[in-house]
Design a protein around this nucleic acid. Sequence first.
RNA 1: GCCGAGGUGGCGGAAUUGGUCUACGCGUGCGACUCAAAAUCGUAUGGGGCAACCCCCCUUGUGGGUUCGAGUCCCACCCUCGGCACCA
Length: 815
Amino acid sequence: MSEYSVRIDEKWQRRWEESGLYRFDPESVDDKLYVLSMFSYPSGAKLHVGHWYNFGLTDSWARMKRMQGYEVFEPMGFDAFGLPAENYAIQTGIHPRESTWANIHTMRQQLRAMGAMFDWDYEVVTCDPDYYRWTQWLFLALYRAGLAYRAEAPVNWCPDCQTVLANEQVVDGICERCDHPVVHRNMTQWFFRITAYADRLLEGLDSLEWPERTKEMQRNWIGRSEGARIRFPVPERDAAIEVFTTRADTLFGANYLVLAPEHPLVDSMTSGDRRGAVRDYVERAGRKSEIERTSLDREKTGVFTGGYAEHPLTGERVPIWVADYVILSYGTGAVMAVPGHDERDHEFSRTHDLPIPRVIESPDGSPAPLPHTEDGVLVNSGTFDGMDSASAREAIAQSLADAGLGEPTVSYRLRDWLVSRQRYWGAPIPMIHCDTCGAVPVPEDDLPVLLPDEVDYAPRGKAPLASAPDFVRTVCPACNGPASRDVDTLDTFVDSSWYFLRYPDNENVTEPFDRDWIDRMLPVDQYVGGVEHAVMHLLYARFINMVLYDLGYVGFPEPFRSLTHQGMILGPDGRRMSKSRGNVVSPDDYITDHGSDVFRMYLAFGFNYIEGGAWEDDGIRATARFVDRVRRWVDALASGDMELGTGGDPDADAELAFVEHTAIKRVTEDAEGFRFNTCIARLMELTNALYRYESEVSPDRRNADGVHSATRTLLSLMAPFAPHFSEEMWERLGWEFSIFNHPWPEADEDKMVLDTVEIAVQVNGRLRGTVEVAAGASEEEIEAIARDNPRVATYLTDGVRRVIVVPGKLVNFVV
RNA sequence: GCCGAGGUGGCGGAAUUGGUCUACGCGUGCGACUCAAAAUCGUAUGGGGCAACCCCCCUUGUGGGUUCGAGUCCCACCCUCGGCACCA
């Protein structure tokens, strides 16, 4: 009979579609299992290996779950707004809407050819007005809750993309999208108040079944640190400079203050004679790019303002400096400099010849060299001398609080989420600007604010929508006066921060989703996607979900119960695949040659799923060989070429059953934990066992029931990884459609016990032989048999001091 | 610098709570089938020693330790990858 090929793929894809096999049944919602792969951007290129690795193997996981009786919900959609379509439009003149929908169309076809269980009835496309209407609704919900606000702030501007970026999209001062350096600009922009959720986003992590490293990344990103706010009065200006510190215990060593160049008090602290120098410095700092300002190895620059503050505890005069090693957006934008116990302040003081007092000694009383940044014992700190750092932090905070000059506080690295973008291909921000009423939300009934087609989307540093007068011109919903629409569009991460809520109720036209229904369908039971979204998408989505929870729209605070990251498949050269390197592996060629199941199965077999690795052509050939080996077996069985009797060779039968049931147990466990490579290894072992049985047992003694059972098990266990192939083999054996409607096999523990087991015999922990003993043998019996082993016996002539027996495993003689 | 993950054959990768290191596969050697090759099947395969073996020694990044027994636990160090980083 014919070999497995892409024609068989097509045959079964048709059957599945015609029979509606994978259609989600809402009636069975009580058994639902929501399995989600991160949806992708519809690029013009074909599906790449990464898509297959993510979607294909997540689908395999879901298929096993289906066979185990779950009503699997496995939707797919497209994160369709975004820059690539727009950049493509700028180059070619083809409208983003046109190219995007064309790409979606081809990508759907390719995803179908993958043979996954996606239920397209629940598809979601973020650039569809039926979807972004609710993205805009979400914006308004946050606005009403006081969680969306407009503010002027220094923001990250990418000169190449001609738009602002969220902090998360700037990596080491470089635009995450286009690799160009990012600069700072002062702009009025929309923000989501994610910082208000910092603590809850942190605490929520503990309850999640997520990879520890991902949780750790989010913790790092949120960057919580406990400390104190301390105010240094400036009597001459009738003001105070507030600093944030985690080291209140070093307060007596603070002998100057440093303001960030953009700090609002810089001007008023500056004395007349210093004005020119300060202004100069601030201006130069403002022109520096993000990378220049954050590079660690450059010399610490700064300038004295001429102003002085008062030390809150000693009353001493403390000079005020401006330096760009202090960042406006963290803490209070000002620090107390403690050159004796902080490396940065130390360096700054040395550069500018400032005194470096010691206020902390090592716990043993020895004066460790400065800067000494560890905790220790206080000295030169007035009444606090002799206290250890930890108690001093509390005591000093208390006396500051008594004086009204400070209080304990918590600072976060996390900043509010900047959501405006000066680009075209995104959801318009549903706000209207009125000269009399200010910023006014678009009434919900007027949603969606449609993205106009006729727009000059060439980037010119301002929002493309500003070039569409019919779009901009409108009336104020509050006063009916003339007004203009907000011309920015939303960060595409807003689109993807709630799509998983829309899937189960994607056709709802009256609300984004029905609360009761969504509470039954979510949280997502298993989410799978790349680790590159660890902060950004996964943090934003948690935030949005938590906000909706607080506002009563959903009944669960966390959207993704369990999360797995697939690794990355690298080119054959072990480097990241890229067109410029010419090391891109295109799935299509392999699928044409071998069929989609061989491709999927190689991805399962060749790598540790979590780690990924380099592509190897030999690996896919090996997988094709294995699949054909199974095919030959099935064909021999189906055609009657293989003679079978009614039994028995008890040993061979038991051995075959042993392999069969061990395979069931281990494939079930390993697939559950995304250890697909060992699953395939077990399938190969079972296949090897079948062939061995055939070659070792004479035809009249072969047990037909045992062979059929093992074959049936093999195909069932293989089905999640090779769905088309397994259906085909199942059919050839005359078994009922569909293999996926048959239950997942269950391991019989009784069959996983052999009559005899091999025991390792060690002498002083070194392996000196193995012996066969009956499975239930007692410790004494095992020891006796081990002693009888001639090779072992030669080591025992000097007498045995101790014997350790681990039943079923080993014997160790200590001599 | 801080935090996290990891270092196992020629290669991809396996190893329950400490219990026969290297499953499964690739590659390679030998053999079968064939006129021959491919495909397929069988068989061997961690490294070294020995004329040879059912023999001995060594081996999970390095060095110590705990234990009858360590890839696994402890200490110190080296290297790789990822995250954070002038964050006060």
